[in-house]
Design a protein around this nucleic acid. Structure first.
Lengths: 119, 119
DNA sequence: ATTTCTTATCGTAAAATTACGATAAATATA
DNA sequence: TATATTTATCGTAATTTTACGATAAGAAAT
């Protein structure tokens, strides 16, 4: 009911520069590729970091995987920590929490109960 | 057979060709732009279709808005129905339901309780 | 029939994404 | 020290996305 409940677009005029909107777009965009979804799923299925070789799991060049990892890192969803000659990748708990809240918020935004399908 | 020979498409939980993974990527990718989030937000805030002029609400050219609407339509999230000289846009209830389930599923995928932040 | 209004599509350009191989940097090991 | 291993980064090419103006298609009004 408060203005914080609906994330900021009230007619007339929509603020495309709203940081929370841009952040939501960044997070969902990061999810918007099968390879990145696969990486996140792999990490989520483990109870510890993944310090193995992603190229043994994904049919892509090492540099390509590294680019996708970079996208996920820059969006705050994973961390990469050097462990000797390897790098261990984990889900970033704070970023994942933010993502979860964002996803729940988006799901709640579309209240199917009042979808009238009027047209 | 080496581990890399059978890798890529049929490891447990990771199948880049999996239609549901591709669908999830398509849906989240559709959300991954501030303008499209704004359009969806605008539609979700109404209990009826929007038959007005999007260019009065969005600081973009008409053709650009039309392109974003096309992306949302092709992803199954909205419908556009001709009403005389205008087109009325609604959330697509089945697509939105699918989206909501997908978002909830993604949020549930990342169980924060076992994020150990080990690295 | 003609004009007006709305919106999709076309054509185009700039920017971003995706993918790869090659290379460099960092670390472990011989 | 020298060598091997791992991963980020560079350079590049192909594709996609994003945005705009111009135009076409369709419907309503004159």
């Amino acid at each position: 009911m408060t203005s914080s409940a609906n994330i900021g677009y009230n007619l007339p005029g929509i603020d495309l520069k709203d940081p929370s909107t841009r952040r939501t777009a960044q997070l969902t965009k990061a999810l918007g590729h099968p390879v990145r979804l696969a990486i996140l799923k792999l990490l989520s299925e483990r109870d510890t970091c993944f310090c193995g070789d992603f190229t043994e799991v994904l049919p892509l060049a090492q540099s390509t995987v590294s680019q996708h990892l970079k996208v996920l890192k820059e969006s705050g969803l994973i961390t990469g920590t050097s462990q000797g000659v390897r790098t261990c990748y984990c889900l970033d708990s704070s970023g994942i929490q933010e993502l979860n809240q964002t996803l729940i918020g988006l799901a709640g935004m579309f209240d199917t109960s009042n979808l009238s399908d009027c047209c």
